[in-house]
Every structure is written in C-alpha cells, then in structure tokens.
C-alpha cells in the first residue's frame, strides 16, 4: 500500500547547518495493517507521519502510495490529531461531515455516511452534541469517525493517548482496536508507549535518534482478537514487550533514560 524509499529529511536550523531529522528510511506498510512507530524524542517519528500525510516533502527519497508518489495532503490519508482537534463549534455530526468536505456528495448521501460512522464508533444519540459535552473517550471516537468517513487508505495517529491517565488509556486502546477491526483500514500509530504499540499492532517499528532512522521492525504474532488482559498475562505479549523495551533502551541516548 505505502512504500517509503530511501527517505532523508533535513530541516534548516535557524542560522545553522541543516539538521537531519530522518536518514535513509525504508519502510513498507501493507493494506489493512496496524503499524506502530515508537522511538525516543527527536527520532523523527512525527516527521515520518507528516511525510505520509503529505504535510511535508522528503529532502531526498520517495513516498509512494500504490506505486505513485504522494503530493500534498489529501483525504485518502487522514489523520487523528493530538488532542483530537475537533471543532468545538460544530456538532458531532458536523465534525464527522467535515471529513467528507472534499467529496461531492448529495446531502442525503452525506447524512447516510455520517450516520454509518456514528454507529460504527458507537455514538448513536450524540449526533447533535458538541465536543465540549463529550468525555475524552467519546471525543476520540468522533475523531476516528471523522478520519474514517472519507474512506481513506490509511488513518494516521499522532500520539492520540499521550495526555491520558493509564486507565483511560487502556480503555481507549481497546476501543481503538475494536474500531480498527470493524473498519478494516490501515492504521499507523505514533506512540512512546511500548505496551500500547505491542497491544495494538501487527508490527512495531523501533526508531533511533540523531539522526532519526529505523532501528528495527518487530512482528507481533499475537492472534486477534486480543483480549485486554493479555497485556499482563500473555507470555508472548510480555516477551515482545520486553524485546521492544530492550531495543528502545539501546537506541535511547543515556541522558534521556528515566
């Protein structure tokens, strides 16, 4: 589905020499895959996501979708933003309909699509609610529904759970997983939480920093559906989790370890 080939991305530092955010990154993302990207701060994981989204262009190398180079952002690659970035002045239904803005749909088609995704994420009855009236979990579901509505090839997620307490985080991960299996879409998630990455993903990409690069890619061969309790009980889960933790320990410079 997606292929990143020999990607290098340099950012101009103010008055200084270019700062290499990503160096020689190669990655393939399969259709329907749940892929997580994990790494220490400054490893370029957000840069990688922005490249796929089309917000930025690589300095060298190519980002391909189905063999064609990606030019600019588009509703075929939607994003679930940090803190959800819902419009506080739009209702749940209108926020989701905003995701369909680029498509020429009749009002009835659009309403039907919105209704479909509202039930997919289990928000029936909240069509007319405003984001401020929803819990954090419900806002996340609106954000996913908005991202899924244009029928994208991939949904990109930039640390959606970063600001949450661990209980909420666990619950929202389970919800996300359920929605992913219902939606049958490719999901790419950025996180700095190992358990989250392993629990959700088919593969975990471990990145290193200075310069940002892919260190290793771990297959998570845990059967689905995955029950919440595998996070504490399943020996295979714990093995993979420790493997990723170990890799992260190796790629993280000593000063950044806590």
């Amino acid at each position: 589905m997606f292929a990143l080939q020999s990607i290098c991305k340099h950012f101009e530092k103010r008055g200084g020499k270019p700062f290499p955010a990503l160096q020689e990154v190669n990655l393939e993302i399969g259709a329907g895959e749940f892929l997580s990207i994990i790494g220490p701060s400054g490893c370029g994981k957000t840069t990688l996501l922005n490249l796929i989204a089309g917000f930025i262009e690589p300095t060298s190398g190519r980002v391909l979708k189905k063999g064609a180079e990606i030019v600019g952002p588009g509703p075929d690659r939607t994003m679930m933003f940090q803190d959800y970035a819902l419009f506080p002045w739009l209702t749940v239904a209108d926020n989701i309909a905003f995701g369909l803005g680029a498509q020429r749909l009749s009002a009835s088609e659009r309403d039907a699509r919105v209704r479909h995704f509202i039930s997919l994420v289990g928000l029936d009855g909240f069509e007319k609610a405003y984001p401020s009236q929803l819990s954090g979990g419900m806002r996340q579901r609106v954000s996913i529904a908005r991202a899924l509505a244009p029928d994208p090839d991939v949904v990109l997620m930039d640390e959606p759970f970063a600001a949450l307490d661990s209980l909420t985080r666990d619950r929202l991960q389970e919800e996300l997983l359920a929605i992913w299996s219902r939606a049958q879409k490719t999901f790419v998630l950025i996180t700095h939480n190992v358990e989250e990455a392993v629990f959700l993903s088919d593969r975990v990409v471990v990145m290193g920093s200075r310069p940002g690069r892919i260190h290793s890619v771990i297959d998570v061969a845990i059967p689905r559906p995955r029950a919440p309790e595998i996070r504490v009980r399943d020996p295979l889960f714990l093995d993979i989790k420790h493997e990723v933790l170990d890799l992260l320990g190796r790629v993280t410079p000593a000063v950044e370890r806590h």
Partner: peptide, 25 residues
C-alpha cells in the same frame, strides 16, 4: 494552526473552510 492542518488533511474546499472553520473561530 491545527485547525488549518485538519482542513488541509481532509482536503476541505475553501468555501467550507471559511464557513465551518474560519468564520466560527
């Protein structure tokens, strides 16, 4: 800025951006 990014990400046409993002904000 994030609202501008949301609009770009979903390919919102200019009229929609003005009506549903810029004006209400």
């Amino acid at each position: 800025d994030v609202y501008v990014r949301v609009a770009r990400c979903f390919g919102a046409p200019r009229a929609l951006f003005i009506r549903q993002v810029l004006l209400p904000a």
